[in-house]
Nucleic acid binder design. Structure first.
Lengths: 384, 384
DNA sequence: GACCACTATCGAATCGTTTCGACTACCGTG
DNA sequence: CACGGTAGTCGAAACGATTCGATAGTGGTC
């Protein structure tokens, strides 16, 4: 029994090939043709479709059946968006590849939040990834509004174009850009809370595992293949000073407020593997092991814990670990991680709302979110 | 030292608020104005920007400086796309929310593959998620081509619109749609390979953990909140017959070819948690434990292994487990999972290439990918 | 010196829709 | 019966670019 009975797509299956060929074959049917067949003017036909304006039921019906007979697909978005000056598209700009960007659940949650707010009534999300120096995609895409997701100052040129087009823009998880509304997080003070928690427990010898401090990436993510920077290595004063990634810097400062002289390493991205590498770098030598480690993301913390476990260390007995983000880690490590929980989806929603508000002429204020401390089972007083 | 020295965004920071207000304030500058200031015709100005056609260097320069003086942002994509009949946008349609869709790494890999191929020269990816009965977003978005990512027959109406618009369309990880090019996977025969591997090891009592068989979701993902279906529960003949999700059905058939009478449970989505629930359902009763379990995804397999571990069972000593997908699981469970590895990113790339090919009038053939068997350390001969 | 080919530029048409103002009936009211 | 109001319809003007065909100018060749 064929299962194609509940739709009538079969009839013109081969049409696709024929009509897709540009400039050849039947031109697509237009509102004018529908109007002609229905015996009304184009303007009336338009009203019949859009629903705005007075149209008699009889006329509307006539237009609709005419459209059906001609296989009219509805008003062409291109014509509509030119006339109306908007396209119903919200852009999401990221500097990384899809795969890299979504390896950290935090980014997925942010995007999901944006989608929740912006995706209603026929709007779509235009994903502009791997946006580098060439701003081509940003120039040639018609977007009503834009959310910059973890973008660095390297896209300043693209932002300039957005400004010239007067496109409402919101930055999420990045530095502040002039003229761009910022949705921010209390990275610095929240990190200070985490650090103070360790201090209160009695820790003095605390090491840091930092997210990338500069380079090719936004806040998180691996270096694009073949590109420089985002190198892993020890956390030196020089690197700290030269840092360009706001998140990493802020979280670092928070810890420094409590442990000014703590040493550490810089990871090449927010990944479990990177955390393991960092963990080994800090823990392999038994003589210079810290009693606690502050990781700048939960994924890094998970890696550190895995490294510690490999070395036979007990967490939190031999080593306390705190993270940042508050993603569900129970699938990665069996521990209940002590961490600073950030409201990821809520931030995405705020960004989405802000863009829509700007679109309607509102003047939304910048929003600053706060992370909340979650005391898990990976921190305890140092042994001895 | 201020860090805003390398861009000149500061000047018009407040412009955004003023000019974003529609209908109010300065209208956006147009190519005509640029042409006027440069003292050339509009057509010449257009040529100066697009680069196609002969323009003297002097003229081009004049146009460009005029544009700069007026803060012209470049040709408006709306006008361009109306005239040219294309927008540079490739749509990716999914029936789930972002968060749900991207919880399984396999979907991220697929999307990444699509992005790799389609995202070159100024193209962008329009993410249409949570596309339900209302096809609004699909009707009102101007897309040059579309990739259906794990869509069910529920979107037949939307596909009809695409066909009427003659929009090149490719289906990935879904059923076949008439008139739509399909990129497929050898789910059935690959599952048979996995099952035969267990049979060869001597297993006779094999249970199945199936992906959702029907309902509100595409191949994977949780039910939309408040919606029916995608229920978890025992795998009955009735449910098996009523299944609508192609992937699950095919993988089931493959196993059935080797173990016709094996029992099993249906999970509510491709998640570790669901795998754990399923695992407990199958393993909690010591008297009716299978010696091996075939899970229809790696995430489900990971959950099953976690459940087994919780019950004190050794994998593969007491229980053999095989999965499907070949995602990097080393961050979730310590085991090297025996599984069927599918070329996820490669499938995405194939879909992307196919859409572009269709766009240029080509006639790409359907592609069928094959999964390869990976013998890990989670399968062994049954004890006794 | 006439003619051709070629370059640089321009005017006008076109893409498909929405929207604004005007125009016709028609209805009810004074 | 004259008149204001309204519902329904229509024509024409945007929207902002690209592209086609035509028109000058320029230099070279026979």
């Amino acid at each position: 029994m064929p299962d194609s009975s509940d739709n009538d797509l079969g009839a013109a299956a081969f049409d696709l090939r024929v009509r897709a060929r540009p400039g050849r074959g039947a031109t697509r049917t237009t509102l004018a043709q529908v109007a002609a067949l229905a015996g009304v003017s184009v303007s009336t036909a338009s009203l019949a479709f859009s629903g705005s304006g007075p149209v008699s039921d009889a006329t509307r019906q006539r237009v609709l059946t005419a459209a059906e007979r001609l296989h009219y697909a509805g008003p062409d978005p291109r014509g509509r968006s030119l006339r109306q000056g908007r396209s119903g598209i919200i852009g999401v700009v990221m500097e990384e590849r899809v795969l890299a960007a979504f390896r950290d659940p935090i980014w997925i949650a942010l995007l999901d939040g944006i989608a929740q707010e912006t995706t209603a009534d026929g709007r779509g999300l235009l994903l502009l990834t791997d946006v580098g120096e060439s701003a081509m995609a940003m120039e040639s895409a018609s977007m009503d509004g834009v959310v910059l997701l973890g973008c660095s100052t390297r896209i300043a040129r693209s932002i300039d174009i957005l400004r010239r087009r007067a496109t409402p823009t919101v930055a999420l998880g990045g530095p502040e850009f002039p003229g761009v509304l910022t949705i921010s997080l209390d990275d610095r003070s929240a990190s200070e809370v985490a650090a103070r928690h360790l201090a209160d427990l009695g820790h003095r010898d605390v090491a840091i595992v930092a997210l990338p401090l500069d380079g090719d990436v936004g806040a998180l993510g691996p270096p694009a293949p073949g590109s420089p920077s985002a190198e892993r290595g020890p956390l030196t004063d020089d690197r700290e000073r030269a840092g360009t990634v706001q998140v990493s810097i802020d979280r670092l400062r928070g810890v420094r407020a409590v442990f000014p002289d703590s040493t550490g390493v810089v990871a090449a991205g927010s990944y479990v593997d990177e955390g393991m590498i960092a963990g080994h770098a800090l823990l392999d030598d038994p003589d210079r092991r810290p009693t606690a480690i502050v990781a700048q993301s939960d994924l890094l913390a998970a890696g550190v814990i895995k490294a510690a476990t490999e070395l036979g260390l007990d967490v939190p007995g031999d080593l306390s670990v705190v993270g940042y983000d508050g993603i569900a880690l129970d699938r990665i490590i069996p521990h209940d991680l002590t961490t600073m929980v950030q409201p990821a989806a809520e931030q995405g929603r705020a960004a989405g709302r802000a863009v829509l508000d700007l679109l309607e002429g509102g003047e939304p204020a910048p929003v600053r979110f706060t992370s909340s401390f979650h005391r898990g089972a990976t921190t305890a007083a140092p042994r001895r």
